[in-house]
Each structure stands twice: as C-alpha cells, then as structure tokens.
Design a protein around this nucleic acid. Sequence first.
RNA 1: GUGGGUAUAGCUUAGUUGGUUAAAGCGCCAGUUUGUGGCACUGGAGACCGUCGGUUCGAAUCCGACUAUCCACCCCA
Length: 449
Amino acid sequence: MALITKAIKGTQDVLPADSHKNQFIESTVLEIASEFGFKEIRTPVFEHTELFTRSVGDTTDVVQKEMYTFDDKGGRSITLRPEGTAGAARAFLEHGLQNEPMPQKVSYLTSCYRYEKPQAGRLREFHQFGIECYGAESPAADAEVISVGNEVFGFLGIDRIRLEINSIGCPTCRKEYQTALKAYFESRKDELCPTCLERLDRNPMRILDCKSPICHEIAAGAPIILDYLCDDCREHFEEVKKYLEEMNISYEVNPHIVRGLDYYTRTVFEFVTDSLGAQAAVCAGGRYDGLIEEIGGSHVPALGFGMGIERLLLLLEAQGIELPEAKKCDIYIANIGKNASYKAAALATELRQSGMSAQFDVVGRSLKAQMKYADKINARYTTVLGDDDIASGIAKVKNMETGETTEINLEDFADSFMDLSLQSAASELQNLVSDDKSVDISKFLGGIM
RNA sequence: GUGGGUAUAGCUUAGUUGGUUAAAGCGCCAGUUUGUGGCACUGGAGACCGUCGGUUCGAAUCCGACUAUCCACCCCA
C-alpha cells in the first residue's frame, strides 16, 4: 500500500463505529475524577526537551531512546510529550498555582508519544488519562489518588486486576539501599543476564523486576527496600496502607516494583492484570515530592498516576465488558419526490432544534432503500413523507422495533414525536428494570439519551 | 535495538505437486413492478495476490531482499 494511505507505524485510527467507546471512557474517567475534586487541565502536545530530561530523568530509557525530539524553525529543541506529569507540573509552576489553595488537583486526557517497537497494548501514539495532586504531603493523599484509579476499574466492572504498592523511599534512604543492593548483586554478578549486568551500574533497582527466571530468583533473595526506609518514609508507607484499608481497597505489597521514571519518591503503585499479555500495567503512578523543585519551583510534595486508554479498552474487551451503544438516530425521515425532500429537510431541522436526532435521505434513493438504510443505522423511528402526506397534513410514524405506526399531525410534529419517543423510552426502561435488577441503568441511559 | 510468526477484495478466509479470465462468506450498491426495514432470491461494483528482484516456457504458489503487521524480549501506560 502506498505510504500516504498508511498510518504511521504504531499509530491507530479510531473509526466511527468505535469512537463511542472512547467517548464513554473519556467522559467516565473525567467525571469520576471530578467527584474527587480533580479538574481538567490541558497542556500542549510538545514542550521544551529539557523539561522531560530534567523531570523524567536523562538516564531513563524514555528519555534516552524513546522521545520524539526535533528542532523547530526557531532552533528550539522540542519534544512530543512522552508522558503527562511533566507538562502538568510545568503549567502548575508557570501559572503560580502553588499560590492557590492547596491541594491543587488536576486531571487530564492526553496523547503521548514514545518511539518504541509497537506490540499489543503498546503504541507510539497512545492516550493517557492521568491525575496529579499538588501540595499534599500526607499519606491520605496517596490513598486518595489510588482510590481514583480503583474507582475507575470498579465502575467499569473490571475484575481480575490487582493493586500492587511499594515505597522506594526518599533520596536519603534510597541511597543507602542502593549501596546494599549493588553489593548483593555484585556478589552474584556472573549469574545475571546481560541486560541486568548493564543495569547493575546504571540502576540496580531495575534488576528487581527482571523477568528472566535466573535474575528473578536472584532478586528474590535481594535486600528489600522496605527494610532500609528511614523512619519518616516507613511511617508514611504504613499510613498509606492504613488509609487503603480504611477505604476498603485491597492491595499487595510488591517490594520489587520499580518505576522507570526518575522523579518518583516514596509511594509507587501499579494496577496490573494478566488479561493483557506482556503489557500488564494499566495504571501506574506514585509520589514525586522532588519534581517541582527539580524544575525550578519551591518544595511542593505531589503525586499522581497515568492510565493507558488503549490498554483500558483492550482490557474491557478481554474481559467481555460491553460499553453502552452509540446514540441511535431518533427518527429517519424517508421522502419521495423533490417537494417531500424539502419538507423532510425542514422537519429534520425542527426536530433537531427540539433536541432529537433526526436524519433524512440525502442520496436520492428509492423508498425501499431508504427504509433499509434506516434499519442499518438503527433508527428508532421512521416516517415517510410524500405528496399525499403533505397534502393531508398527517404523517405515519413507525416504531422500527415493534413495527407499530402512529399518526402524527405535521403541524406540531416535533412536539408530538417527542412525547411518543419519551413514552416508549420510559416503558423500555421500565421493562429493563423489572427484567433484571442488576442491569446498570446508566449504561442503558447512555444508549438512548 | 534483539528474536520469532504473518502478508490474497472494506472484513474473515479458500486457492491442490507452479498451468488459461484468482474463489467464497460477510459487508457495500441495485433489483425481485404500484408508498414502508429486518428474511429469502437475483445481479453488480470491488484484488497490480504487500513491494522489488530472481528461478521458470509459465509464479498468488518456489527463492532472496525490503516494507508492513502481529507476538515476545527490552521498556512502559
């Protein structure tokens, strides 16, 4: 296929048949976040490259080999954001949000870009839902951020997902730990896999989550960071767990969680699933108390998470969870002849102004073909307009599901049709509720409203 | 960046040991007389068989390279 008719490697189109799923997810997560007081922030797709090298860390894989970086025409080094935290932090500082009442809580839906080799659940352009909470040192904030993620999965009906948490301490206690860890791995140097051998110098903590069986086994006997936490960090971690328990959120402590972004401190967490192949982490984040200072602000403790939208969608599919259907067309106006076409256009306009979704034939097809089309687009009602109907002033409206027809006066068509439509929606809802009490009403409403 | 699988209509796939105009189902368009969809039937459009090169009288089929895509490593959401 010619290059110009081929999407860039690792990018994906969302087609009209599927976009309602994205829309549903997006509005759902934003809504849930807002219940917790997180308000949406929107930042640019690109930033100065230095923002990411400073925050994400210039020894990380993300910065070293995955960023889309280029010089613009003014000679600035620009980078397409590889994650959402840095841009939000930059905006927080730039607009002096530290002078607003604390905590500041923001949420976002962004596209992110990483030059990686694509595979299941891993794209070069992907989308993240994220939240950030600034100015809260307390472990209660950690638990609250985690609970937002928990709420999203709960609301969507996802099970077989577990929360793993860990603390990687503050720079002071982590240093001590890393020394001990390095000493341990040095002692078993000749057994490590080649990649871990490299990691030994760069970041020995990464060896902890290596998947190779030998390294995994060696890592099992390695010193555990939790034993090296300073009193403050240990206390903080204990409190986070306490809050999670109070909030009824189950978790597992996994001392081997190591995040690949340098800015994390203390609490780190991942929501992981085994229904997604190698890309197990659907949502991950943690605390980053040093980040705001690192990019030039004062000391502002903060934390947040990112959730992969594509992975979330994959997960929903893997677990057979149905999302609400796209909004149907309320009424399709079939028309015969030029005159009727004019009338149909006017009627459709009137119906839309009353808040209904209305369509009419714009192709010039036969009546039969128009009816077929109405069926294909899942129209709830159809009406046929011809010279006779216009002359008599009465249109027959057909319920496409039951086949029943109702006569409606063309004079006040929009109002009468709305009554009819609401009545049938109400009775459908009634049936649904009495049929099955467990049905999520909001899903149904999403389908018809 | 490393390894493995795959590549035939919009989609899912047939295509024998290389042998004329590459097949089917779904989908799309139209028709089965007069103004009412779903079912059925009929017809139609739609494929440079991923690309380039090689072997051969002859390649969708065999060989090579490239590209794309999928999966795993790595990394991460």
